[in-house]
Design a binder for these strands. Structure first.
Lengths: 142, 142
DNA sequence: GACATTCATTAGAATTCTTCTAAATTAGCT
DNA sequence: AGCTAATTTAGAAGAATTCTAATGAATGTC
């Protein structure tokens, strides 16, 4: 395979740049994750998608890979639901709607939520990140 | 037992007001939860505390009770960590610091975080609640 | 290109947290 | 006291994730 010229947004280039060995499994997962716009996925979803494509990737590898990608800054962890971990391919500044009834996440552009004031971190601690989660329910006024 | 005059902030009155049968177990849990200021607890923590007091309450009852209390508006669910559910005795308007390294929650007064703008809910949905979580890490400038 | 080394993958077991089940107990009536 | 519905319980079951220890694959060296 000719790999002399690889875009940084292609799966291979992305992995290279992140210092991750491009294995068959990682390439498959990177393709699923990064070639269809911003996504919010769970490990289980990914497993099913990958399986549907005919690729064989174990659950352990899916978890390992998601964590590797997250550490490398390719993904971001989203905590909105106990007992379900979402990974977000949008690592930029933004927040989330969470449709509880459908277990579905929707991005909110970072600038749409402006914090007029942010509390100081307690002594000895620093702010790592600020998550804003807007929980949605069905609108009753049907 | 004389129950003619019961404060609404005493365990018994609290349960009565919420329409919950005051059982031995619920009274014990209510006492643990509501008589030492605002708290953030997990089911496991509560189990241990109750056990330390010598009361016998099964895990199933702890979960049942926490959920009953939450439905009754006595507690609030806090999601900050996948695979760990916190219950907050402060049901008023406020947000949270989360010290990831210690799995510890700290309240942020509701007015300390002002949202300058809030996004509109997508069509057919309404905003249920807005959570702001400020994640903390140890301050490096030791 | 073969070799050695290090890193990655895997199946399945194990862990953790939470919910379920079905039987026994208890609270709140009359 | 006796009735009924709500509650509690131990233990099994379930769901999501991590661990283990063995196999396999990528990379650097000659």
């Amino acid at each position: 395979m000719d790999v002399t010229h690889v875009s940084e947004t292609e799966p291979l280039g992305r992995l290279r740049k992140a210092g991750l060995r491009p294995t068959r499994q990682r390439l498959a997962l990177a393709r699923m994750l990064f070639s269809q716009g911003d996504r919010h996925v769970t490990a289980e979803q990914l497993r099913d998608e990958v399986a549907a494509e005919g690729a064989r990737v174990s659950m352990a590898t899916i978890y390992n890979t998601l964590h590797h990608f997250t550490r490398a800054g390719l993904l971001r962890h989203v905590v909105v639901d106990a007992g379900r971990t979402y990974f977000d391919t949008n690592t930029g500044h933004h927040h989330h709607f969470y449709v509880e009834s459908e277990h579905r996440l929707i991005d909110i552009d970072g600038d749409t939520v402006r914090l007029a004031s942010v509390p100081d971190a307690p002594p000895g601690r620093a702010i790592d990140s600020i998550d804003v989660i807007v929980r949605l329910k069905p609108d009753i006024r049907a």
